[in-house]
């Protein structure tokens, strides 16, 4: 089975220059991989570095050392070292991300927010909007909201827009940061089904799920992030 994502010997710390340069270690020696069609769940208590790992993989956080290897357009790209332009191309075509919160843009409708990743890949706007509408309907977002900018939506509504935006493309790797945190049971169920579909399509998924029921339903294995925690080493 193909393995589109390999993380090897990754170290990360923050240096807080405004706090006398104190160094906050985040994770050390992170090693894992995710295979096609597999959903790996990052486990462990809050503050252990789960979101930080996702942010490093997506290029939002820099990496002190190590490699993040992604199979992108039949070549291997190391996100830890790639230039901004390459990272953006990887995001456009290979690596999707559903963040916890939606970054809203004034005046852009929910439908267009969802359709945007397809438009960025060169798909015609009407077709992209049709696909977006399908997903929003599936996620039970009231139709009267589709043409409104999501800034005024409730947490759960924004999250569904965010999920639709993340799931609309056929990216080979999908990162999920608590996509079901503010959803009701019905919509959690929908998302679980959508994740199952992605697995069938051979997408490699890596996610954080605090909801036990969802985790049980989607996880092929749980990766305990506390093994990468530098704090544990200090305590021992």
């Amino acid at each position: 089975m193909a393995t589109p994502l390999v993380v090897s010997e990754v170290f990360k710390s923050f240096t807080m220059h405004l706090r006398d340069g104190i160094k906050l270690p985040v994770v050390k020696d992170v090693n894992f991989s995710v295979a096609s069609g597999e959903c790996v769940v990052l486990g462990g208590p809050s503050g252990i570095g789960k979101s930080s790992i996702l942010k490093m993989l997506y290029g939002n956080y820099a990496v002190d050392a190590g490699q993040i290897l992604v199979d992108h357009k039949d070549r291997i790209v190391d996100i830890a070292r790639a230039d901004p332009r390459t990272v953006l191309d990887v995001r456009r075509h290979t690596l999707g991300y559903v963040s916890q919160f939606l970054r809203t843009v004034p005046r852009v409708s929910a439908l267009d927010v969802v359709a945007e990743p397809l438009v960025a890949r060169g798909i015609a706007a009407p077709e992209a909007r049709d696909r977006a509408a399908e997903l929003l309907a599936k996620l039970n977002l009231p139709r009267e909201l589709w043409t409104l900018p999501p800034a005024t939506f409730s947490g759960g509504e924004q999250q569904r827009v965010n999920i639709a935006r993340g799931f609309i493309t056929s990216h080979r790797i999908l990162l999920l940061d608590e996509p079901t945190a503010s959803l009701d049971a019905v919509n959690r169920r929908v998302v679980v089904d959508m994740i199952a579909d992605k697995k069938r399509e051979g997408v490699a998924l890596l996610g954080i799920f605090h909801d036990e029921e969802v985790r049980e339903a989607v996880a092929d294995r749980v990766l305990d992030v506390s093994q990468f925690s530098p704090r544990k080493a200090v305590a021992a």
């Binding site: 923050f14 240096t15 807080m16 405004l18 942010k55 997506y58 290029g59 820099a62 901004p84």
Partner: peptide, 21 residues
């Protein structure tokens, strides 16, 4: 100098940290 998301989410230089904070 870097990806906009990276510079804003994980600023490395003291001055950039001051700007972002």
């Amino acid at each position: 100098h870097g990806l906009t998301d990276r510079v804003l989410d994980d600023p490395r230089e003291p001055y950039t940290q001051l700007l972002v904070s």
